[in-house]
C-alpha cells in the first residue's frame, strides 16, 4: 500500500533505536548499578572469593565453572550490552547464534538445585541483581528455566582460550555438545562437522 522510501531500512533502524532511547534513563541506572556491582565483584575476585571485609557480597551459584562465552570480567560489565545487541539482531534479522543468546545463558547458568536462574539469592541472575538492587526485566516475558535438555548440562561455546582442559578436548566437547543441542532442537539431523557457531 504505502511506498517505502529507499532508506526505509534506516528509518526503521532509527525507529528501533528510538524505542530503546525511551528507556535510556532506565538503562543508565542499570549500567550505573552494574558498574558498582562490577567494582564490588572485582574486589571479591581479586580477594580469591574470600570476604576479607565485613561487607557482605553476593554468592551466585556457578553451575558450569570456567566455560563462559567471554571473560568473567567482561561479562560482569557488559552482559547487558551484548544481550541487548543480540536481542535486536535475533528478533529483527533472525540471527540465531548461540553466543550471547539469552536462552544459551540460561541453559548454562540455571541452578542445578531449582533448574532456574532465579528463585533464591544464590541463583545466577538474582544473586547480583538483588545485591545491586537492579531490576531485571528479562523474565517478565522470558522463561528463567533452560530449554528441555533431559538433565544434560552442556555448553555449545567454549572459547579457544578456555582454561579447563586441553584445547583439543575442549573442541571435541564443544562439538559434541553442539550436536546434542541440534539433535534436541531439530528433528533434521545436522551434519556440519566444521560448524562452529559464533
Amino acid at each position: 500500500m504505502s511506498v517505502r522510501p529507499a532508506t526505509f531500512k534506516w528509518v526503521w533502524v532509527s525507529d528501533v533505536r528510538r524505542g530503546l532511547v525511551k528507556r535510556g534513563s532506565l538503562w543508565g541506572f542499570a549500567i550505573l548499578g552494574a558498574s558498582l556491582l562490577a567494582v564490588a565483584l572485582t574486589a571479591t575476585a581479586s580477594g580469591g572469593e574470600q570476604e576479607t571485609s565485613r561487607v557482605p557480597l553476593p554468592h551466585p551459584e556457578i553451575a558450569n565453572p570456567g566455560k563462559c562465552v567471554a571473560d568473567t570480567e567482561y561479562m560482569r560489565k557488559h552482559h547487558m550490552d551484548v544481550l541487548l545487541r543480540h536481542r535486536d539482531e535475533t528478533v529483527h534479522e533472525g540471527i540465531r547464534t548461540k553466543r550471547y543468546s539469552l536462552t544459551n545463558c540460561i541453559d548454562c547458568h540455571a541452578s542445578r538445585k531449582n533448574n532456574s536462574v532465579l528463585g533464591t539469592k544464590e541463583n545466577f541472575c538474582q544473586a547480583c541483581h538483588s545485591y545491586a538492587a537492579v531490576k531485571v526485566d528479562c523474565f517478565e516475558c522470558h522463561s528463567s528455566k533452560p530449554e528441555a535438555t533431559a538433565g544434560a548440562v552442556f555448553h555449545p561455546i567454549v572459547p579457544s582460550g578456555a582454561k579447563a582442559g586441553p584445547a583439543s578436548a575442549d573442541q571435541g566437547l564443544a562439538l559434541s555438545m553442539q550436536q546434542h543441542m541440534r539433535n534436541g532442537l531439530a528433528a533434521t539431523a545436522n551434519k556440519n562437522p566444521g560448524g562452529e557457531s559464533r
Binding site: W12, D15, V16, R18, G19, R87, V91, H92, E93, G94, C141
Partner: peptide
Amino acid sequence: TGASFKRADGIVLVDRH
C-alpha cells in the same frame, strides 16, 4: 514505536521489547 515489523523474509512480528 516500530514494534510491529515485517522481517525481510515476509514474516510479520511484534518486537515485544
